[in-house]
Structures are given as structure tokens and as C-alpha cells.
Design a protein around this nucleic acid. Structure first.
Lengths: 256, 256
DNA sequence: CAGTTCAGGTTATCTGATGAGTGCCGCCCG
DNA sequence: CGGGCGGCACTCATCAGATAACCTGAACTG
């Protein structure tokens, strides 16, 4: 495995540490193209060229070290880089695994939010969410296949069932929406929403825990489904807006 | 400076390496909450509590090392983490500097796109863009102040002027839209769009270079401005959709 | 056959040393 | 007096080697 990896590795390190700097080709006078950066590029390229899929294991740090002829810490930093981007997960004692395939054309958009006031942060995020979710539902209404529709309905039923049974239905609610995003056949929607939601839940739960929320937002989920079933994009948008309105109320009330 | 930093540091590392694990407080049995993660949290918290602003310099690696009582490699990996998130920049021989202030509630949403077919990638991104830009324009229409409006108009005028003069107006077009996003008074919009656009331009330019594009999308920019001026959210949405439609045409044509 | 133990592989982290930019400060020369 | 030029101090970049903690699966035991 080590050999195979080595042979496929598309990288060329620009000169070993000992070599004088002047040996460096004049390719780019860019700011600090360190080895670490080259290694990240090499890794990305490798993942792409080796056709690795989500869940696959990457070579061990020591193997990479040997293959790229760099120190272990450098490798680790490169791995950290992808880890921060949420592309890779490393399990201590086991190895590092690919979460999503990367390519060099990876779009990463780290956002930061000043959370001086939690309320404001939530509302700001909500505004963005409104844009994305509405569009997602509209696209889903237009592009969904019958198969997608079945999946969405299953999730909707499950959600209603759990709600009646337990009073709350956080995960099922999420599953329902994710099913819709999948129906857009555009992976970006799902990724975006997943990430947002994930960060959201961090300080979420509170409002969502109120069975109130589930109860009030409930009818709209069904109508949203109907709109998508009818391929009525405009109606889908309307219903999504209604759901998000409930969310907004909760946020505003949460902070009194 | 080192001392000052030390005293402000909000972190408590859970026990040094030498200490037997059983000494660890039972705070959380979470999966792999390694020191590195604690260090990133500590750093984020520090930046927040110390009120660091963009451009400020962070303590040197060795200082951090001493303050947090961890090894240097651990510090470096944490720094790499923020670097990947685009929050920090490190300049060799000088130090590491803050690009944007972070908080623990930083939302990072790295997206990756399979760019097997450029055309699909562009269209997928466009769908998301449609959601976000429409919403941004709507929010701007509602929340804009008179001052915002003046800024937007200035950018619009500049854009038209440059267009007549040079035939193209890429940067000015961007400036115009950014002015709108600022009028939302929601930093997320601008960040999101900026990042997307940045990645976009990478394989963009081609279609945008055609003065055709500018010419065709031109009238809608003016009408979009009018809608925002009139605080007519729905109209703003309409106009934005029209602009994006032109973009979509170009993308579709580009790939023949 | 189920539960336990153990070995080998892997990540996590520390330590110490060296390379290599940056910036400032003082010395020297004109 | 002013400007350059070297040198020192500081900082990041990287490497090498050594532990510690951890995971997995296979061999082993009852």
C-alpha cells in the first residue's frame, strides 16, 4: 500500500530543507509557499487521483512522511488543515479517514459571527437560512423525482409519528428537511444546511425543545410537502417561510 | 506581555501528559477531546476576551506554549486550524496575525464541490447564490438606511461610468453588490457572498469578460437599485432574479 | 462459544535542535 | 549630520526521536 501510494503521489517538493533557497524555481513569488502548503495540495491531489471515497482511510502519517519526504509534524499540520475544513476525521489509534472527497477546487467558506449577542447571531443566521432554505425547497419542487417524493413523505410520516409519541421530534425534523435538500440534486444545499444546522444546534436545543415549536410548525411541514408534491415552487417557498417564521418567533421570545 | 497573556488565558488544560489518566477530572467522557482541540478553544476564547481586532498580532508560539503548558507542535497545529479557516495569517519571521476576529461560536462551513463537470458546478453554485442573493436584496430593501442607499447609488453610478468607458466592469459590479449586502446590516451575507464570488471568479472571468454580459444585465441593476430605494422587497427579489438569469444563460452558453 | 488478553499499528504529544525570514538598532563612512 | 550596512534578537518552519494513549483484530482461555 505504501508503494502504491508513493507511485501515485503527484507532488514534487521544491527542494529539501538543506538546499539553498536560490535553487527554488521562479514559479511564483507568492507569500510563503511553505512545504506545508505543498503537502496539503499534494494530499488533495492524491485524494482526487486515487479516487478515494468518503469513509476511506488515508495512509498512515508515517507512510505519508516517507512518501513525501517531509517530517511528521508537517504531515500532521497538513492533516490538521483538512480537519479544520471538515473534510477529514482522524481517529486516534486507528487512522485518518475521509469524510467528503476533496478536490483542489474545493470551495471552503469559513464564516465567523460576532456573538456578542446570542440573539442577534441567531437572527442573522436565520436571515441567511431563509434565503437558502426557500431556494432549496423551490428547487426541490421543480426537480424532485417520484423517488425523492416517496423519501420525503416517509420522513414526514416518521416525524409526525415520533412527535405524537414523544412530544418532540428534533432529529426527525432534521431528517425531513435533509430529504428535501437531497431532492434538489444539488449537494451544495445539503452541505450548507447541514453545517449551518450543526452550528445552530449548539445553542439551539432550548427553543426546539419546547414541544410548542413542533406543534406550531407542524401543519406547515405537511403543506410544504404537498407543495413539493404538486411541483408548485412558489407555494413551497411560502410554506418554508411560514416554518421559519415560527423559528423566528421562538428566537425572539427566547431572549425575552 | 507574556505574563499578561498568561493571566488572561481562560483555559484549563486537563492534566499534563505525564499525569496518569485517572487523574483527569470527570468533566466529560466525550470522544477524543484532545488537547489540540482544547487549545483551539482556548485560543478562540483568548482572542475574544482580549478584544483582539483584525490585524493584531498574537503571542508567539513559544509564549503560547508556556502559557498553555503544551508542546509547541500542539500550538502549531491549533494555529494551522485557524489558518485553514482563514481566520489567521502567519508571517514567517514576524509572527501570526489575526485576519478576522473569531469567537468560539464561529460558524465554519466548508463546502466542497465535485468539479467533474465545470458547467454543473457553476450551475449548482448559482442555485445557492440565487437563494442567498435574493434574500440579501430583500433584507437590504427592508433594512437599508439612507446612508446605505447613497453608497449603493454611488457604486451603481461608478459601475455604469466604467462600463461606458471600458466596456467591462467586473470589479465595479462586485462593489455594487457588496454595497447592497452591507445594507443588510448582517455580516454573514457579505462574508458568504464574498467567499463564493471569490471561488467563483476562479473559473469565472470567461463569461464575465464578454461585454455582452454587462450590457444585458445592465438595466436590471438600475431597477434593482430603484426597488431597494423604494423599500420594495418583492421587487428587489424580482430584479435580482433577472440578473441571475443572465448569468445562468451565460453559463449555459459557455459550455455550449 | 463467549469473554479476555495481547501484540502491532496508529495517532497525540513532548523535547530539543537547526534552518531561515524580519525587523530593529547601532556603528561606520561619506 | 544622514544614510547605508551589518549584526543581533525574535519568530516561524521543519526535522528527528521518544513516549503515552488508543484501537483493532487475532490468539487464547474458561
Amino acid at each position: 500500500m505504501s508503494d502504491q501510494f508513493k507511485s501515485r503521489l503527484p507532488i514534487r517538493i521544491w527542494g529539501t530543507m538543506k538546499a539553498p533557497i536560490s535553487d527554488r524555481p521562479l514559479i511564483r513569488p507568492l507569500p510563503a509557499m511553505d512545504r506545508a502548503r505543498q503537502v496539503t495540495d499534494a494530499l488533495a491531489e492524491y485524494v482526487q487521483s486515487a479516487q478515494l471515497k468518503a469513509g476511506d482511510r488515508l495512509p498512515a502519517e508515517r507512510e505519508l512522511m516517507a512518501a513525501l519526504v517531509v517530517g511528521r509534524s508537517t504531515i500532521r499540520e497538513a492533516i490538521r488543515h483538512f480537519q479544520a475544513l471538515g473534510v477529514i476525521e482522524t481517529r486516534k489509534g486507528s487512522g485518518t479517514y475521509l469524510l467528503k472527497p476533496v478536490s483542489k477546487a474545493t470551495i471552503h467558506m469559513p464564516l465567523s459571527l460576532d456573538t456578542g449577542h446570542l440573539r442577534d447571531a441567531l437572527l442573522q443566521t436565520l436571515e441567511v437560512r431563509r434565503g437558502i432554505e426557500c431556494e432549496a425547497c423551490m428547487v426541490a419542487a421543480r426537480k424532485r423525482t417520484d423517488k425523492d417524493l416517496i423519501l420525503i413523505e416517509q420522513n414526514l410520516n416518521e416525524m409526525e409519528r415520533v412527535h405524537i409519541e414523544k412530544g418532540t421530534s428534533g432529529p426527525e425534523d432534521l431528517a425531513f428537511h435533509l430529504a428535501i435538500y437531497d431532492a434538489t440534486h444539488n449537494p451544495l444545499f445539503r452541505q450548507l444546511l447541514e453545517q449551518m444546522r450543526e452550528t445552530f444546534w449548539q445553542f439551539w436545543e432550548h427553543p426546539f425543545e419546547r414541544e410548542d415549536f413542533a406543534r406550531r410548525s407542524f401543519p406547515f411541514h405537511r403543506t410544504l410537502f404537498n407543495a413539493i408534491a404538486a411541483r408548485d415552487a412558489e407555494a413551497a417557498r411560502e410554506e418554508t417561510l411560514k416554518i421559519l417564521e415560527v423559528v423566528e418567533e421562538d428566537i425572539k421570545e427566547m431572549s425575552k
